[in-house]
Write a protein that binds this DNA or RNA. Structure first.
Length: 548
DNA sequence: TTAGGGTTAG
């Protein structure tokens, strides 16, 4: 195509057009040919052409080539810097983006709106609230804030976990569009403020499918699966779905993820069938969520079936997440051999998540042999992984292999690993209160322990029996065990929530490690006996949520 | 005379 343009020779104004087209096509060959032609025509130092080339290499995923072009520009302008900063920010190299931003200012360039957008992308990727706030103050003091820039700032605050900052900015924005509103709604959804999210949704000037989706996830995250389904049905009744809109598949996938999260695998499968009846083509994420739902509900047959049909029927090549789901599913069901042969058949190198799933299954089924293999692979990939050691140690302990437990502890000590202490946090009126096991550092410690004792008395009279399996290995005396159970960080956080939040406020507890089974039971009972809403999450739950 | 870079929801 390019060679046929010979009748009229391309000049320096033509190149950027052609390079942009090559970038859109993500066709590396075309771009490289054009690059070569430009050099031959002595246009190798034209800043417009080189800027286009930076963008082109970035869209082909060749950040290093892009950076080489950038370094070879004799006289850069602000667009050169912006193109390169954008490339690093979008290419998951936020540190380099921020470094370049500082360099740019050091060389006397004035950042513009586009620069700030990219720098915000970098902050968001890094989840760096401090740098984000600094960028915000920069914007207020220099570059004129625009609607887009404000939207990006609200998004940065939401993603970095500060709904408060997001809301402050949102409230004083002179102009808002549906993106501003939806981003804020997502913020409420993520932070679990369902009531606020609902109110916000209702006051929106208009609602598109993305807004409905955010409302549904807000509802799911607050643990209200039934209402989420009701909202979803309402949305269907509005016939807002169109076969062509990519956003539709988001809603269906999110709804399937919601069912997966609450262990309603059959509903997820039903929804998947309905989705097909509505002629909405599932995406890779839809399948991750669907397989996850099957796995959590033990729908082995269905899971195997969907996994098998992914490629031939739906044209979606199974990715690493799908394999990890399958390994988890097979492992939970006790089919460890099948899980292992699936891992061996994987076309890509298995990530830690895959071996982690296998190791979890070994714990469930007490298989020491496979556990040793799985943890060895896992530790090759992530030598610092505390979880793998702890899990293996628990598996050894469960089968009475105390010598191996001791060996493992020694190994952990030798390489300087300590078991990460369990820590739970609860938010009360905008302040995060953290508790570790047996914590007595909190100002209201006495009140908390008093409440905890009262709670356990009440629960016992309601038939509560502590689940001792998790502390058996470390505590021998029975009364000590009970004490250790009472002192779990989750329970302290819940007790503090009980005394400091009103009945209408949900108690949101977040744990850094996996929430233990006994704490789950206690939370469930408290919420029933005391009629309180308790949301107990750990970082694994969050990871699951964020992945899908 | 003409051209190049940026934002939202799983």
């Amino acid at each position: 195509m390019i060679y046929k343009c010979n009748e009229v020779l391309p000049n320096k104004f033509t190149y950027p057009f052609v390079i942009k087209a090559a970038a859109e096509l993500m066709d590396r060959r075309v771009g490289e040919v054009v690059h070569g032609m430009a050099v031959k025509m002595s246009l190798g130092s034209d800043v417009f052409i080189l800027n286009s080339l930076i963008h082109f290499y970035e869209s082909c995923g060749c950040l290093d080539s892009a950076y080489r072009v950038f370094l070879n520009i004799p006289v850069r302008d602000v667009v050169s810097w912006n193109s390169m900063i954008t490339g690093f920010a979008q290419g998951d190299r936020p540190d380099e983006a921020l470094k370049l931003f500082h360099e740019m200012q050091g060389e006397g360039f004035r950042p513009d709106e586009v620069t700030m957008m990219s720098v915000l992308t970098a902050c968001t990727k890094k989840l760096d609230l401090e740098v984000g706030r600094w960028v915000h103050s920069n914007i207020e003091n220099g570059i004129r804030g625009s609607l887009n820039l404000n939207n990006a700032l609200v998004d940065m605050y939401v993603k970095c976990g500060s709904v408060e900052d997001a809301q402050k900015l949102f409230d004083k924005m002179p102009e808002k569009d549906i993106v501003s509103w939806t981003t804020m709604l997502v913020g409420y959804a993520r932070s679990g403020h369902y009531i606020t999210a609902r109110r916000h949704f209702e006051s929106m000037p208009s609602q598109d499918i993305a807004a409905w989706n955010a409302l549904i996830s807000a509802c799911e995250q607050s643990g209200n699966a039934k209402e989420a389904l009701a909202i979803f049905n309402e949305l269907q009744a509005l016939e807002m779905f169109s076969c062509s809109d990519d956003k539709d598949v988001f809603v269906w996938s999110a709804m399937i993820a919601g069912f997966a999260m609450h262990g309603h695998g059959r509903d997820a499968v039903e929804l998947f069938k309905k989705m097909q009846e509505s002629n909405i083509k599932p995406s890779g994420v839809t399948f991750t969520n669907l397989l996850c739902a099957c796995s959590h509900t033990g729908l082995l047959q269905e899971g195997r079936y969907f996994f098998k049909k992914m490629e031939p029927v739906y044209g979606i090549t199974p990715g690493i997440k799908h394999y990890a789901c399958m390994v988890d599913m097979l492992g939970r069901a006790g089919h460890l051999e099948e899980a292992i042969s699936l891992i061996k058949s994987m076309p890509m190198p298995p990530l830690a998540s895959v071996y982690g799933a296998l190791l979890g299954a070994c714990k469930l089924h007490g298989n020491v042999e496979v556990a040793e293999q799985a943890s060895a692979r896992l530790l090759e990939l992530e030598p610092w992984n505390h979880g793998a050691y702890v899990l293996l140690s628990n598996i050894y302990a469960k089968s009475g292999k105390w010598d191996k437990v001791a060996n493992l502890r020694k190994r952990m000590k030798d390489i300087g690993l300590k078991k990460e202490p369990g820590c739970s946090s609860v938010e009360v009126n905008g302040t995060i209160h953290e508790f570790v096991v047996g914590d007595n550092t909190h100002a209201q410690s006495k009140l908390i322990y008093g409440k905890l004792n009262e709670v356990f008395e009440t629960l016992k009279s309601n038939g509560y029996e502590p689940n001792r399996s998790q502390v058996l290995q470390c505590v021998e005396e029975e009364d000590m065990q009970e004490q250790a159970l009472h002192l779990h960080s989750e329970k302290l956080a819940i007790a503090f929530g009980l005394i400091s939040l009103t009945k209408s406020q949900p108690i949101r507890v977040m744990k850094n490690l996996r929430v233990c089974r006994d704490c789950h039971n206690v939370a469930k009972m408290i919420s029933k006996v005391y009629d309180r809403e308790i949301l107990l999450r750990d970082r694994f739950t969050f990871q699951v949520r964020e992945k899908f």
